[in-house]
């Protein structure tokens, strides 16, 4: 177990080092002048030259990389060329709001996806299965940026039921300000007993979370189905059935229990999927999160921000994958570590 853990952690570090090398190399071969972006569109030549020196852009590439990594591990992620603030500060502001969105979306897709998956496995090849399959495949085929637009058109423009975007209504934020504790508006509002902020946050979450959940719902449904099917085909289920145990009991006591692990895996994997999916969804819904920040950085070729966010999301992805694997090993001793 310990050897496995060490190996996995080392691998994680390797992955993250690789990530940093790739993004850094790409960032420096871009035909963009970071110094020009730094000083803004009306700078004078001497200002650009000075900025280049200040940003260390006059150093050889490997020196720049070593310096970048050295500072990075000390918490200095560089300064965004666009917002002109430390990338880490920006990330601290925007990450919780993305995390809130992703968590709610993931919750939605798990709550809906697991029953769908079980249903479609037990009614295999009958219409509920076909329907769930079509639904699931349409989920992974859906351009989320387009789905978000359609939802806005229906629920905002036509029905006038839900707000078009943002995280909370302006007035509510001005009149019922929230002190960020967890950074999750829903939690903060509930903890503070701030009812208007709570309802406003919830209402603003519905469309983006539903959009985002749609894709991972498909994933969760299909993986649950596959897991249940696989378990159902295994010997101990056959034995249970042969022993004449009632089908309900077989399904819920034995099959579902054994299908938890693969489903857990997919929840973990969906998380990474959602972290990436949230980029476009946030843009559509004007959600003040990491995704909107990243897309703005991408458009401006703000490479410290691009690198910082990429690294952060990759780290989260690696850690979650690791956590899922370890959890599997703990729950199911049959999972081989090695």
């Amino acid at each position: 177990m310990r050897a496995y853990l060490v190996r996995r952690l080392l691998l994680g570090v390797l992955v993250l080092l690789g990530v940093s090398v790739i993004t850094f190399t790409l960032a420096r071969i871009v035909p963009s002048d970071p110094a020009a972006l730094w000083v803004g569109p009306r700078a004078r030549p001497d200002q650009v030259a000075r900025a280049r020196a200040e940003l260390g852009l006059d150093q050889p590439l490997h020196v720049q990389y070593a310096r970048y990594v050295g500072k990075f591990v000390q918490g200095d992620w560089g300064v965004s060329l666009r917002t002109r603030r430390p990338v880490l500060d920006d990330v601290k502001v925007f990450f919780p709001s993305s995390l809130e969105l992703v968590t709610v979306a993931l919750g939605l897709s798990v709550v809906a996806g697991i029953p769908f998956g079980v249903m479609s496995a037990t009614r295999r090849d009958r219409w509920p299965d076909h329907l769930s399959r079509l639904f699931a495949i349409s989920g992974v085929s859906m351009p989320l940026f387009w789905l978000g637009l359609l939802l806005q058109l229906v629920f905002f423009r036509t029905l006038r039921w839900l707000p078009v975007g943002g995280r909370m209504a302006t007035e509510v934020r001005l009149l019922h300000p929230l002190e960020p504790v967890t950074g999750f508006n829903l939690l903060d509002a509930a903890l503070a007993g701030n009812w208007p902020a709570l309802t406003s946050s919830a209402v603003h979450l519905i469309l983006p979370a539903a959009t985002l959940a749609y894709a991972s719902l498909a994933l969760v449904t299909r993986m649950t189905r596959a897991a249940v099917l696989e378990v159902l085909a295994q010997d101990f289920i056959r034995t249970a059935r042969a022993m004449g145990l009632p089908e309900r009991r077989v399904l819920y006591r034995h099959a579902l229990k054994n299908a938890v692990i693969p489903t857990l895996t997919v929840v973990g994997l969906s998380f990474g999927y959602l972290m990436a999916g949230t980029f476009l969804v946030e843009v559509i819904f004007n959600w003040p999160g990491l995704g909107s920040y990243m897309v703005a950085a991408i458009i401006a070729v703000d490479y410290p921000a691009i690198m910082g966010v990429t690294f952060l999301v990759a780290t989260a992805y690696v850690l979650i994958n690791l956590a899922v694997d370890l959890l599997q090993a703990v729950i199911d001793p049959r999972v081989r570590l090695g």
């Binding site: 691998l11 994680g12 390797l14 992955v15 993250l16 690789g18 990530v19 790739i22 990474g272 999927y273 972290m275 990436a276 999916g277 980029f279 990429t310 999301v313 990759a314 992805y317 690696v318």
Partner: peptide, 12 residues
């Protein structure tokens, strides 16, 4: 090397 590349969320 494949681990490194699959270590990213794909769209990112």
């Amino acid at each position: 090397l494949t681990d490194v590349f699959l270590g990213f969320p794909p769209l990112l």
